[in-house]
Simulated scan of single mutants.
Amino acid sequence: MTRPAPHQPAADEPGAPTSGLPAAPAAPHSLRAESLTLAYDGRTVIDGLDLELPDGRITAIVGPNASGKSTLLRGLARLMTPASGRVTLDGRDVRSYGAREFARRVAVLPQQPVAPDGVVVSELVSRGRHPHRGWFGGRSSDDDRIVAEALAATGTADLAGRAVSELSGGQRQRVWIAMVLAQRADIVLLDEPTSFLDASHQLELLDLLTESNRELGTTVVMVLHELNLAARYADHLVVVDGGRIRAAGEPARVMTAETVEAAFGLECLVTTDPVAGSPLVVPIGRYHRGER
């Protein structure tokens, strides 16, 4: 059964994007991990993992704390050097790409990005255009238009002149997302992009990433903490546990009570989300176990 697309607000609804994301369709790319092992200080976190990310789809990586999901994303983003194995983009080791060449293809938002001291919002978002500029770094009218569109789409245009350091956590997160959108990469890797956002802004952000995927063909890969949001928005779900992949595939096949209990130690029921038709995890807990 085809899952309904997540709700997109109408133009006059609260939270609706004020601008679309017009651009050329994303080019097809193949991003994969091959026998990938990643370690910190000699401690193996990801252990001989193989993973191919579906092109032009939304992949959510989930797993318990300390399972290795954020480390895996860092490896895919070439923020870590593998202890063994490799990550390839279009058949080439990601480390063989120059920084600008890689950034034109892959945009990365780590879990706790740090803005330069004193930078204002418009400056930070415009940094997403750096990989596309010539050697002399001149800013074109196209760059200005794309930055304005990214600010409008994330609802941050009114913050353009504010220092990033003055913003709330939720505002800051939306500004970072605007920078990623301005980069216009074909693949976007995001680590916990809904951090610091309230429920309304979480949905708004995930709707925006879905819009980019559906309209532009952007491949979106994101680590998410909330299982039900992951199941609702992902086309492809990867459950990481103990540095290995416990399950991967369509959410309806992967998000089962057995998988959730095995990976998270969480007794639950899995039913159907009445809005999206995706799997819905209902935790049981000790107090209510006897009431079923």
Rank of each mutant, 00 (worst) to 15 (best):
P28A: 09
L51E: 04
L49P: 00
G15H: 12
E261S: 09
R104F: 08
A10T: 10
L208D: 00
P22Q: 08
S19I: 01
L280P: 00
C268F: 06
N213P: 09
A178R: 02
L203M: 03
N213S: 14
L38T: 08
L269V: 14
V114L: 14
T272D: 14
R127Q: 14
E13P: 02
R57G: 05
E291K: 11
P251Q: 04
A11N: 00
V180S: 05
A157I: 13
V87S: 01
F264G: 02
R292A: 13
S212Q: 15
P274T: 02
E166K: 01
V220R: 06
L197H: 09
V121I: 10
E291P: 00
D55C: 15
E215K: 10
G118S: 12
G56K: 04
H132E: 05
L72C: 05
P113V: 06
S212I: 01
G161N: 10
V120F: 06
T37N: 08
A248K: 08
H29G: 07
A24N: 10
V175P: 04
D158P: 00
V275E: 05
E34N: 12
C268H: 12
T272Q: 10
N65L: 05
Q173C: 10
E192T: 07
A160L: 09
A16P: 01
D117Y: 12
Q171S: 08
R162K: 15
R95A: 15
Q183H: 13
A5E: 11
E226T: 01
R104Y: 03
R3W: 00
G20W: 10
P279I: 09
I58A: 01
H201Y: 15
Y233Q: 03
R145Y: 05
A231T: 15
D90K: 08
H201Q: 09
G277H: 10
R145T: 14
R244I: 00
L159I: 10
R145C: 02
G91Q: 13
A23M: 13
G63C: 02
F102H: 11
A248R: 12
L76M: 11
G68A: 07
A99R: 15
A248D: 04
D55L: 02
G155L: 12
L280Y: 15
S140C: 09
G277P: 09
R74G: 09
L49W: 08
G118M: 03
E204V: 01
T2Y: 08
E261N: 12
V281Q: 07
E13N: 03
T194D: 04
R32Q: 14
G249A: 09
R184M: 07
N65I: 11
T18R: 15
E123I: 01
T81M: 11
D158F: 12
P22K: 00
G63E: 03
A103V: 14
D186P: 03
A160R: 15
L38W: 05
A10N: 08
Q111A: 11
L124T: 03
